[in-house]
């Protein structure tokens, strides 16, 4: 059985007929070719696949595409405005918050959800929030610094 789904992705309406087994991340990467959202583990552990769905960060490898019917989804591709990076992207760039970059889209989407709820998080709150995002390269310190800097920048705007 194929099921029709309609959703908004990065502000644009999208419709598709999907197998109920299709994951949201598969819809994004394979049908819509939005390959900025990564798959690190496919077992809900690593957070590389984090996107926003109806204003909440979720692991898109653990959400069915059919369950995103009617939803508003934002991926890493939806953040920059033209050539202007989102303050969180800019801060990761400036503070060297990435090395290989594989975890980065998930880190950034997760961090933006944190700042939306808590504009001035402490270092401990940032680290607690990132428990679902694994990074094999950086050791997290510069990621935390980048998020602190982005939060300050967003507060000042």
């Amino acid at each position: 059985m194929k099921v029709p789904v309609s959703l908004t992705v990065n502000g644009e309406s999208v419709s598709a007929d999907v197998d109920p087994r299709m994951l949201l991340v598969e819809l994004l990467r394979e049908e819509l070719r939005l390959t900025g959202t990564h798959v690190g583990c496919d077992t809900s552990q690593c957070g590389c696949c984090v996107v926003h769905m109806n204003g909440r960060s979720v692991k898109s490898c653990s959400v069915l595409a059919v369950a995103a019917d009617d939803a508003e989804v934002t991926t890493i591709e939806g953040l920059a405005v033209g050539d202007e990076l989102h303050p969180m992207q800019q801060a990761f760039h400036e503070h060297h918050g990435l090395q290989c970059g594989f975890c980065t889209p998930g880190m950034i989407m997760s961090a933006i959800d944190l700042i939306d709820r808590n504009p001035n998080p402490s270092e401990a709150e940032i680290r607690h929030w990132l428990e679902g995002n694994l990074c094999r390269c950086t050791g997290y310190h510069n990621i935390v610094k980048a998020i602190e800097a982005a939060a300050a920048e967003i507060r000042s705007r």
Binding site: S110, W129, G132
Partner: peptide
């Protein structure tokens, strides 16, 4: 429980 994204679902 788990992490922020687990708690969001």
């Amino acid at each position: 429980i788990g992490d922020s994204q687990v708690r969001n679902r």
